[in-house]
């Protein structure tokens, strides 16, 4: 939009974004606080980062969380991509509205509901809670996010590419791997990243489905926060925040660079006929 930004718009942006970012910035700043007390500044120190690394329980939780995140994100990406293909490419079939309902409902469903219902399933199936139950629970709700992302990527992309491949003698499965997959790959990667993050961040669903040996990082953090919190929690939170931020910014910068390069090449092509 070309209209000049009004003072009202600028103010609402500045106030809005300060509201969004200030608490996080404060949290990061206080991870470098020397004092034990999380709220009174008493000098710069990185000792909580060191403490965090030596906290064996915390590191164990990190390891479990990463393992769950990696497996569930990967599985969720596969399932979510399949579901996106079903929704975007398979037209109508018996039970389609139930299917799309099961994709969209977990996006808004309160986590306590998802957590409780899954743990009751696992108990009814006589499954011990642990790595696998959390992994399956995370896969189930994060695959829906993957589906939404991949589906929108699929709907952007020109169907005639697939038809052209088939027209040139390429059977459907091969068409998927040769043509469709390279086109929707950015969506799939974004979906994986989101699924991984959701798994990494989840407290509620993991709490319901965790066993005695599988305390995840958010569960540890929650326990500490309930006890009053320590700068160590600020430190690990800072690292998580920075990891996410770097990941998201890197991904978007890469896609943007690619787009800019492409636009530049298109401009060149048009100039030199």
């Amino acid at each position: 939009m070309l209209s000049r930004p009004s003072w009202f718009n600028i103010t609402s942006l500045v106030v809005g974004f300060s509201f969004l970012y200030l608490p996080i910035v404060i949290l990061i700043v206080f991870s470098f606080n020397d004092a034990q007390l999380a709220t009174v500044w008493s000098g710069f120190s990185t000792r909580w980062y060191g403490g965090m690394l030596q906290n064996e329980q915390l590191m164990q939780a990190v390891w479990i969380t990463l393992r769950i995140g990696l497996t569930s994100a990967t599985l969720a990406t596969v399932l979510g991509t399949l579901a996106a293909l079903v929704l975007a490419r398979q037209g109508r079939f018996f039970g389609r509205s139930l299917f799309s309902g099961m994709i969209y409902a977990p996006l808004v469903m309160p986590e306590v509901i998802l957590g409780l219902s899954l743990v009751l399933l696992f108990v009814a199936m006589d499954q011990n809670q642990g790595f696998w139950t959390i992994m399956i629970a995370h896969t189930t709700f994060s695959m829906c996010y993957v589906t939404v992302i991949v589906q929108s990527r699929l709907s952007e992309f020109d169907r005639s590419l697939e038809e052209a491949a088939m027209d040139l003698g390429c059977p459907p499965v091969r068409t998927f791997f040769h043509i469709t997959l390279p086109q929707i790959l950015p969506g799939i990667l974004a979906g994986w990243m989101l699924a991984f993050t959701l798994s990494l961040n989840d407290l509620v669903i993991a709490s319901f489905n965790a066993g005695p040996e599988t305390t995840t990082l958010p569960m540890r953090i929650y326990g500490q926060v309930k006890l009053g919190g320590t700068p160590e929690i600020n430190a690990i939170s800072t690292i998580l925040i920075l990891l996410m931020t770097v990941g998201v910014i890197l991904a978007s910068v890469l896609t943007k660079r690619q787009r800019l390069k492409r636009m530049e090449e298109e401009r060149l092509a048009a100039a030199h006929l």
Binding site: N201, V225, I241, T245, S252
Partner: peptide, 24 residues
């Protein structure tokens, strides 16, 4: 695009950490 990303970024941080930030 930058503003959109700035709105999305907090979404990638867990509720737990964001609620914790407010405790302080």
């Amino acid at each position: 695009p930058i503003l959109v990303m700035m709105v999305i970024l907090p979404f990638w941080t867990s509720f737990l950490i964001r609620a914790y930030a407010w405790i302080g």
